[in-house]
Nucleic acid binder design. Structure first.
Length: 459
RNA sequence: GACCCCAUCGUCUAGGCAGGUCCAGGACACCAGGUUUUCAUCCUGGUAACACGGGUUCGAAUCCCGUUGGGGUCGCCA
């Protein structure tokens, strides 16, 4: 059985759950996390697809907090969900629905099922736990056409009755989920494919409740390098992890959208508008996708570089401030502009550009040995120092002119001066163009650092 | 174990529903070269895949069957 092709062909041999016009009706999708912890990367991708699908069809994207597990659900987790959605720009179109507040409706549905004979009371499991309400599964096979997987079918013999209401009177996931989806008018249920088995039960529930069936789309999982479900042990697994590690929301969004979906052409970097315009469940992959943080990092670099300078400067200022560095805005803007192509993460700024802000910057010992380790190198550095000091002004073109002139005069490659100067002025062998860097650093700082280098005992 | 899902470069994928134009295209990563004072960016080139076996067909990555491999589900969790 091969992916998309087969499933799309077969779809039309099946009876549709809803008329084709469904798409022209108002599409309503929802993200329904259970607030028991941080928001997992796989869940947020489901949220993204729900959002994109709703936007594509001019419909609505809703949020439902499935907090019926009172023991494990926490307010902090609810906050985490809200923050993750806001950060990624996935605002819901209506106020969030809290499942725990819908219990009256859940109970009413159970009563309805009880009186119609589709559910029954029974003492199940260990003695002493009391009575539960069980749903009576139909005695015929159940089938539905998944928007991603194609026609799916389950024989009656492979399905058992299941609990709808616990012995303590609280509704179980299946009941609450379906009742709420009906109440919220959800037309398309887009969720992880670990829910496929549940869907048969849900289909039976919708039918028993006399509610119209939504369309279902089951997304494949996100797996790690071992092909196992992606978890915290595989590095960043939660939305908050990515955020704190310096990933941009747009970069993560773009990467995640493409992890399991493609526009059908060669585009990689896409705007939200493009994604919305082109998104379709038909093009969602049906096999699990392996998370590749290196590609995510590449996306991040692309997005960081595309940031307007002012935005990048502000973001860098925040990161620096968190590191106890208060940078003067104009100066910082020069530094950030200088580092433009070299920043893949905004959070790299403190380590990558420390020497711009403090005299206590890290020094690469290896670079010092290589570029300042010989008597000759130090002599060249001294010559360069004199040239810099004699420069008419301390702008990049002026500095470049005096140093190149010096090299010409001594008939040596200009690199002979550049490399020692770079290490003496920044402590590093890598960095922006030397003359621009020196100009931004300023005469005083540069000369002082060079003098300090010259004063240190040679290796 | 039962039931279900999945299978194109190392990874994400295009192509598959309408079989030939695919000795399989793009991106990340990797390798080489170029640009450059370094690093990064950027540019050029390269290595690299249709899981296997049958079948249908003049012709299969594309259709069918099977095998193998991977995954999911079998809770008074969600």
């Amino acid at each position: 059985m091969t992916g998309g092709g087969g499933r799309r062909k077969m779809r039309f041999q099946q009876i549709e759950q809803q008329p084709e016009q469904v798409i022209s009706m108002t599409v309503r999708t929802r993200f329904a996390p259970s607030p028991t912890g941080q928001v997992h990367i796989g869940n947020i991708r489901a949220a993204i697809y729900n959002w994109l699908f709703a936007r594509h069809h001019g419909g609505r994207f809703l949020l439902r907090i499935e907090d019926t597990d009172r023991v494990r659900s926490t307010d902090e987790a609810v906050q985490a969900v809200l923050e993750a959605l806001t950060w990624l720009g996935l605002e819901a179109d209506e106020p969030p629905v809290y499942q725990s507040r819908q219990q009256a409706a859940h109970r009413a549905a159970a009563e309805q099922l009880l009186s119609s004979g589709r559910a029954y009371r029974a003492a199940k499991g260990e003695a002493g736990q009391g009575e539960v309400v069980l749903f009576r599964m139909p005695d015929h096979a159940l089938e539905f056409t998944d928007e991603i997987k194609g026609p799916l079918r389950k024989a009656a013999a492979d399905m058992q009755d299941f609990v709808l209401v616990r012995s303590d009177g609280t509704p179980v996931f299946h009941l609450a989920n379906v009742v709420d989806d009906v109440a919220m008018g959800i037309t398309h249920v887009i969720r992880g494919d670990d829910h496929i088995e549940n869907t048969y039960r849900h289909v039976a529930l919708y039918q028993a409740l006399g509610a119209p069936l939504p369309r279902f789309a089951h997304l494949p999982m996100i797996v790690n390098a071992q092909g196992k479900p992606y978890s915290k042990r595989d590095g960043a697994a939660y939305v908050g992890d990515f955020r704190s590690r310096g990933f941009l929301a747009d970069a993560l969004f773009n990467y995640l959208v493409l992890l399991g979906w493609s526009p059908g052409d060669d585009r990689e970097i896409m705007s939200r508008a493009e994604m919305i315009a082109d998104f379709s469940l038909e093009r969602v992959q049906s096999k699990a996708a392996q998370f590749d943080e290196r590609k995510l990092a590449w996306f991040n670099g692309q997005y960081v570089r595309a940031l307007p300078l002012a935005t990048r400067v502000a973001a860098c200022a925040d990161v620096l401030r968190a590191h106890g560095i208060e940078a003067e805005p104009t100066y910082l803007a020069q530094v950030v502009d200088l580092l433009a192509e070299r920043l893949q993460f905004i959070t790299d700024i403190p380590t990558q550009a420390a020497y711009f802000f403090t005299e206590d910057y890290p020094v690469d010992a290896k670079a010092v040995r290589k570029r300042l380790g010989t008597a000759e190198a130090r002599e060249r550095l001294a010559e360069a120092r004199a040239a810099l000091a004699a420069a008419p002004g301390f702008t990049a073109p002026e500095l470049e002119e005096v140093v190149r002139e010096l090299a010409e005069r001594r008939a040596v490659s200009v690199g002979v001066y550049i490399h020692p100067l770079r290490v003496a002025a920044s402590g590093s062998a890598a960095g922006p163009g030397l003359f621009d860097m020196l100009a931004v650093l300023g005469r005083e700082r540069v000369l002082a650092r060079v003098d300090r280098s010259l004063a240190e005992p040679s290796a």
